[in-house]
Design a protein around this nucleic acid. Structure first.
Lengths: 141, 141
DNA sequence: GATATCCTAAGACAAATGTCGCACGATGTC
DNA sequence: GACATCGTGCGACATTTGTCTTAGGATATC
């Protein structure tokens, strides 16, 4: 009778994204941010979403001030990884190859990233392409 | 008051996967297939899911025989694309680069696919790595 | 300190998801 | 034709998701 494991639906993800972006925020701040991006939610809706996120343990709140300040407890990395796994398993039979291909086809990379990915791949397939300038590109996130 | 646009939840996706795999199937066949993969659903559950899928218009049924034969109406490609778009937008700020990197890191490609992807990338970044034996591999799906 | 504000708490409520149970008709079997 | 099967139709029910309303406390403002 175990309850279903907690997931993060899209609406909550929108909220979470704001927190990841600015590190922390109050309900109102999140609301403003989302308004600026087109989401026409009411204050209460955002509050509910943050509350649910906290219940699920993915965000924490500093309740010392008048307006609670929420902060993410999990990284976007963790969520991303889960989604990726799910995608690969449920829609690609655990075969990431096709996924990568589809991805490149539908979402072309800009040159810098293309090179970066290429470097990784070359290392993976056996450094076959000599070019000399393999300076590790320190991409900042 | 528009109802939310129809989505395909994970449970339904499991069912859909069986249909994509074998082209078509009856409730019982889907049930068997899923049982074989660990899903302990009841007959009724599978029937419900197929019914919902049909309501959503993603599968159709041939009702001439005793047991209805269901068949997918959309391709896995379409669903995959939607999921990919969602992932890129919601979790990667529309930047596919990081996603590809993460993907490669967590789900290493086997040599064949790695080379295939690599070829695509080289074409994308400007065929800089000369090697001579780059027979274009026309991979069939 | 009366008011206007802003917050959170609590709940409401419809739709979607996850999983069935069961009545009842169509079929197959002696 | 009586009985065991198998299949669909229909409905049920708990949870989750999507969105809000409203009550009532804490703060700021004159």
């Amino acid at each position: 009778m175990a309850k279903r494991p907690p997931t993060i639906p899209d609406s909550e993800l929108d909220v979470l994204n704001v927190l990841w972006d600015r590190g922390q925020a109050t309900v109102r701040e999140v609301l403003e941010m989302l308004r600026a991006v087109g989401r026409q939610w009411s204050y209460a809706t955002v509050a509910t979403l943050l509350d649910r996120l906290e219940t699920k343990g993915v965000v924490a709140s500093d309740r010392s001030a008048l307006a609670f300040v929420y902060r993410p407890v999990i990284t976007s990395q963790e969520v991303r990884q889960k989604r990726i796994n799910n995608l690969v398993e449920k829609l690609y039979h655990g075969e990431p190859g096709q996924l990568v291909l589809h991805l490149l086809k539908s979402h072309p990379l800009d040159p810098r990233q293309a090179m970066e990915v290429r470097a990784v791949l070359e290392e993976m397939t056996g450094e076959r392409s000599r070019k000399g300038s393999e300076a590790p590109s320190p991409a900042a996130d």
